[in-house]
Write a protein that binds this DNA or RNA. Sequence first.
DNA 1: CAACCTGCTGAATACGTTTGCAGATCGGGC
DNA 2: GCCCGATCTGCAAACGTATTCAGCAGGTTG
Lengths: 339, 339
Amino acid sequence: MKSDRPTSRDIAEAAGVSQATVSRALRDSPLVRPETRERILDIARKLNYRVDRSAAGLRTRQSRTLAVLLFEDTTADASHVNPFFMRLLSSITRQASRLEYDTLVSFQQLSRDWVARYEISNRADGLILLGYGDYRGYAERLAALDEAGAHYVIWGPTDQTSHAVGCDNREGGWMATSHLIDVGRQRIAFLGISSEQYPEFRARYHGYCAALEHAGIEPDPALRIDADNVVESGQAATQILLRSGVEFDGIFAASDLMAFGALRALRTARVPVPDKVSVIGFDDLPAADYVHPSLTTVRQDTRLAGERLVRNLIRLIEGENVAAHVIVPELVIRESCGD
Amino acid sequence: MKSDRPTSRDIAEAAGVSQATVSRALRDSPLVRPETRERILDIARKLNYRVDRSAAGLRTRQSRTLAVLLFEDTTADASHVNPFFMRLLSSITRQASRLEYDTLVSFQQLSRDWVARYEISNRADGLILLGYGDYRGYAERLAALDEAGAHYVIWGPTDQTSHAVGCDNREGGWMATSHLIDVGRQRIAFLGISSEQYPEFRARYHGYCAALEHAGIEPDPALRIDADNVVESGQAATQILLRSGVEFDGIFAASDLMAFGALRALRTARVPVPDKVSVIGFDDLPAADYVHPSLTTVRQDTRLAGERLVRNLIRLIEGENVAAHVIVPELVIRESCGD
DNA sequence: CAACCTGCTGAATACGTTTGCAGATCGGGC
DNA sequence: GCCCGATCTGCAAACGTATTCAGCAGGTTG
């Protein structure tokens, strides 16, 4: 009993052909006669043979591996991985597997210099960059990747790079705000970061403003409250809003996490939702369905997004060009807005 | 400008040494003189050299890669990845990275024959198996892995295999139930699967019974309701309980998801929590902190668990023996039990 | 002074695959 | 009968690294 894994040479010997023919048969080359191929495949199956990826990779200069770099929100607890990216990750690994690519996953601290993780591109044919915000100035980092000749795609701003797949955040903001207007709200607050650092949230804010103006409502600066992408911050922002005395009957939180915070603050203040105030979020986290009242929100199709990311990346690897791909958001109506 | 990545030969040439010496220097061999090593490392840095993992792997017969196989709960929506395993995954990749291992991730459908994915062990030095339940009869699959000489660890029942790292579910069930008793509850319902298929939930149930008996309470079969590990099922089970007319003042749900369902059912039935009924869950999902009332639950230390899984796996890879490792659960007290 | 050790370095080889090239076989056209 | 193309197969050369073995210098010992 041989303890070592069989090699293509073992198969060749058993099949009475050369090792080269085995390799060709396994790679479905038209150069080998169908009956020979069958015989070889049979024997390979019987011996439980698998090509050695290291050897194949060495020869072909490819790893058939995609690396996913997941940038964590520094504001979030390290142990709380954003479920949205988890769904994306799940879709990515599935699609990659379908296309016979393996997926390498690495969780990155934003604070750490991830340029060091170029190293991972050593192992992978391409990179998928996942995260909210600008990854601490990703423009320069991306330029560095370009310069290094790396293949990569990124979840994010589709208007800035053709390597991006991203949600139409402006449209999402428009949809959310329009829905609030549709259910009769006029004084709608916006919760979220509007700084340069979070282009997604800014785009949602622009959609918010556009929807208001379209309805003939002047956006009120007093209704725009900054908040970080965590529950506590959404709660604090809502408390500030409540204490400020500014009148409002709706809240559009730029993320579900902040919306959860808003719900909590309103409950504490005994403001009934959705009777007095409607609340809408963004992301459709699983928890949006658990909380009370369940959260109306804007969903991004993570399955499609993951598939596009993988597809575009593989195209890049194969030397083709790609265009940025926009994911169209979708309104998910639950209880928190009423009707 | 050379477009190709530099090889150890390029470094050797630049440093005026042989390729062998470069290889030795990079691997910190004591055979190379410190000053020579420094010179080589300098040049390697300057040329942005990285060892080719395929070549190194081919030579050493190792990939320095760990594969994580994540088995999804068939009862759950495919897009809803259990956050608990996400936390575990995050910890695993971090620890692996610390020990200079890469992490390959693959989401597996339970229905698909994952033995086929042994293939992945071709790419990885070891396997980490993650999932609830028995993975559709994992005992046989594990035996197959053993036979194939694969290195693997598994999240699960520590009493059944030394390859396991797992929570002391019995202790967790005991803690949860004891807490309910401590806050004055006597008629405590248990929500969760008790079939063979979910050993975790059964162990929690045993802890529940033991705690009751320790307090001099006879476990009432009418208070044990079967439920699947999803919100809807927890809700349905609670509704059944409510309609049955059986008196109860506490609910121990074997998972947070089911506990969320219980909370929803109780709210719908206008049963105040925790005034009339205390509810406790298991897992400490992030959402446990968002829902209202926030959920008292039992936390498993995912960071530690991930670290142990990786550590034990690497030990196995290095030919050492390992013992199963038990993670001690911890009570997280929030609002849903009162005091 | 020979023999020997110590501390370092280089030449050469093997890891298992893919693939360019050349050769073999065979049927058919002239 | 000869040549030619079509089809298949084998030979051999990479790919970049880790490692064995031998060698060399310089110092120490007998």
